[in-house]
Design a protein around this nucleic acid. Structure first.
Lengths: 343, 343
DNA sequence: CTGAAAGCGCTAACAC
DNA sequence: GTGTTAGCGCTTTCAG
C-alpha cells in the first residue's frame, strides 16, 4: 500500500531530473537555474537562454515539494465540499477555481461526504500539506476540527452559511430568511394549506430554511399542515416519491415546499405525470435557483443564490488576506425569490 | 500574489509546531515521535502514550511536505477532469475517490476546462508535487503533455475512451460503438428520417459517437437527414433550442439523436412543451444513462455507461501498479442500450 | 550577475 | 526500544 521509493539504479526507469543535474548540464550553479526558473534576481540573457534550453531538453519539472519546504509556503488553497454530486457545490467550486485562476494559487479539492469525522480527517490531511488557505462549506464542525482550523495560522473561510462567530471568515446566505421568503410568497399568492417534503440532507442548511419557513407562516397565523421527512440525502427521486406520499396523506394541501430545487423538480415531475395541475391544484417551491429548474416545462419558483459568487468571494477573501488586506469577517450574499410557473 | 513566509517572531501568530518541538516536549528523539506517528518500528507502550499526549496537546499536524521530500514519495494521486459542471465527470470522480478511500491514497483534483493548454499547465503543476499516479479524462493531449506524462515515471491512466496506444493505461468505452448502438436501435424501432443536434463539446467523444452513429445508419442505406451543430459545450438549454430549430428546418424527421442525456432532456422538454408527442411523432436518443433521464415524465432512451465504475477501475489500476502488479494496459468498459419511452 | 553554505521538517539507515 | 547521522531538492542569505 505504501509507495516504495524507486531506487536510482540503472535497471529502473530514471527519476525525474533535479535542479542539480540541470545545473551541471548547463554548467552553472543550482542557484542560477533556480533564478531563471522563478524569474527572480538577475541573470544574463545568455545564461538564461542556455539554462532554459537545458531545462526544456531534459524535460525538467521543478520539485515543488522541495521548494515548498524551503520557503515554508505553497500556492495551494485547500477547499472542502460535502459532495460533488450536488450541483450547488460544483458551482461554488467553479467560482473558487475561476477566481484562483486569476492568481498564482491552485485549489486542492476534498470531499467530506457530509460527514464530520471525514471532514476532520480531511482537514488534517490537507493541512499536513501546508496550504496557504482553507475553505470549507459549512459551519458545523467537530470541536477538534474547529480547533485545528483555528490553530492552522492560515486564512480560513466557511462558506454557504452565515454566523456571527466564524472560525475566521464566512461567506454565506441567511437560510432562515430564504425559508421565510418562500413562505411569504406562498401566502401572498393565496396559498393557505401548506406542506413540506424534507430530505434530511445532513448539512443542516435545509433545516434552517424550514425553520424560517415555518416561523414565517406562524407569524401569519398559519402552520405547516403536513410534513414528510426522509432521513437521506436530497434527490429528485425522493422528491417525486415524497410529494406523492404527502398528497396522499394530506389531500387538501395546496402548496408544497421542498428543501431544494432538485427535490422540487422531482415533485413537479410527479404532478405532471399524475395530472395534477400546477399551480392551480398544487403550488411548488424550491431553493437554489438551479438552471434546470428554469428549463422545466413549468419553470420552478425558487429562491436564487449566487453560488458561483460565493465561491469567487471566498477565494478572493483568502487571497486578499494573504496579500495583507483585512477583509470583513462576516459576508452575507443576497438571495432573491424567483417566481416561476409553479406558484 | 506570492505568499509571504510568516516570520517566527513573537508578534506573529506562531507557526505550526515541528517534530523537533514535539520531541523536545516529550523528552524523546525526533525519530521516536516519527515512529509513533507513522506506527512504524517498535516503541514501548509507555513512551508511545507520552508522545501521543504531547502531540494531541500541541495540536501537532505533521508536515507532509517534509515527509514527502524525505521519502521521495507521496500518497497523492492526481486526477484531471475537463469540468465539474458535467455530471459524468463528477460521477467518475466519485468512483475514483471511493476506491482510493479504501487505500491510503488521496485524490488531488484538477479542472482542465476542456482546454489542452490548460491541461498541459495542470499536468505540469500537479506533477511538480510528485504524486504517485496520474489519471486524466481523455486521450487527446498536446504533444508536450504526452511527453511529460510518459516521462513522469509514475502510472498514468487515461479514462473515458479507448485506444490501442495509451500513454500507459486506459479505461474507457468504445464511443463509436455507443453511437452505433443507438443507430441500430432507431432502425430496429422503425425510424428512418433521422436527425442530430450536436454540441461541439470539445472533448471529441461526442464526435466519435456521431461518427459511429452515422456509419451504422449508412450500413443500412440510411443517412443523417438533418444536423445542427453548436460550437459550445453541451447543455440542456442548447438541446431545447436545438431540436426546435432542427425540426423547423427538417419537419419530416421522426427521430433525433443527441450527444448526451442532458442535451436530450432539453430536447424532450421542448417536445413536451410544444405538444409534440413522444415517441410517436419524434423519437429521442441520448447517451450516458444519467439517473435524471430515467426520472423524466417519459424516461429517456439512452446508452448507459458505468461512470462510477470507470473511476473505480482507473484508481484500482494505479494502486495495483504501485503495488507491483501488472494490470492490463487497455481496459474496455461495457455499455448497454436502455430503452425508455422516447423511442 | 553568479556562487557557496546552511537549512526547511522529516525519514532511511545505521548504531547502540 | 531508542538515538544519531545524513540527506531528500530546493531557496535564502550572504559573499564575491
Amino acid at each position: 500500500m505504501k509507495p516504495t521509493r524507486l531506487k536510482k539504479t540503472k535497471e529502473t526507469k530514471r527519476d525525474q531530473p533535479t535542479l542539480k543535474e540541470v545545473a551541471a548540464a548547463a554548467k552553472v550553479s543550482e542557484m542560477t537555474v533556480s533564478r531563471v526558473l522563478r524569474e527572480t534576481g538577475s541573470v544574463s540573457k545568455k545564461t538564461k537562454a542556455k539554462v532554459l534550453a537545458v531545462v526544456d531538453d531534459m524535460g525538467f519539472v521543478p520539485n515543488k515539494v522541495a521548494g515548498s519546504l524551503a520557503t515554508s509556503s505553497s500556492n495551494l488553497i485547500a477547499v472542502i465540499v460535502p459532495s460533488l454530486r450536488n450541483q450547488v457545490f460544483t458551482e461554488v467550486l467553479s467560482g473558487v477555481t475561476d477566481y484562483l485562476d486569476t492568481t498564482g494559487y491552485k485549489a486542492v479539492i476534498g470531499i467530506s461526504d457530509y460527514k464530520r469525522e471525514k471532514e476532520e480527517q480531511l482537514v488534517r490531511s490537507m493541512l499536513s500539506w501546508r496550504p496557504s488557505g482553507l475553505i470549507v462549506s459549512n459551519l458545523t464542525h467537530s470541536d477538534r476540527t474547529r480547533k485545528i482550523m483555528a490553530n492552522a495560522n492560515i486564512p480560513v473561510v466557511e462558506m454557504m452559511e452565515t454566523t456571527e462567530d466564524p472560525v475566521d471568515f464566512c461567506v454565506g446566505l441567511d437560510h432562515i430568511k430564504a425559508g421565510a421568503l418562500m413562505a411569504r410568497h406562498f401566502i401572498d399568492q393565496g396559498y393557505r394549506r401548506i406542506g413540506y417534503v424534507g430530505c434530511n440532507d445532513r448539512d443542516r442548511t435545509a433545516a434552517k430554511r424550514f425553520k424560517g419557513f415555518a416561523a414565517a407562516l406562524r407569524k401569519d397565523g398559519l402552520k405547516v399542515e403536513g410534513t414528510l421527512e426522509y432521513d437521506q440525502p436530497v434527490s429528485m427521486e425522493l422528491g417525486k416519491k415524497g410529494i406523492a406520499a404527502l398528497l396522499s396523506d394530506y389531500p387538501h394541501l395546496d402548496a408544497v415546499y421542498f428543501p431544494n430545487d432538485i427535490a422540487a423538480i422531482g415533485g413537479l415531475f410527479h404532478c405532471l405525470e399524475a395530472g395534477i395541475s400546477i399551480p392551480s391544484s398544487v403550488a411548488i417551491g424550491g431553493f437554489s435557483g438551479l438552471k434546470i429548474g428554469q428549463l422545466m416545462p413549468v419553470p420552478l419558483t425558487t429562491v436564487r443564490v449566487g453560488r458561483f459568487e460565493v465561491g469567487q468571494r471566498s477565494a478572493r477573501i483568502i487571497v486578499d488576506r494573504l496579500n495583507g488586506k483585512h477583509p470583513n469577517h462576516v459576508n452575507i450574499v443576497d438571495i432573491k425569490l424567483i417566481k416561476g410557473g409553479t406558484t
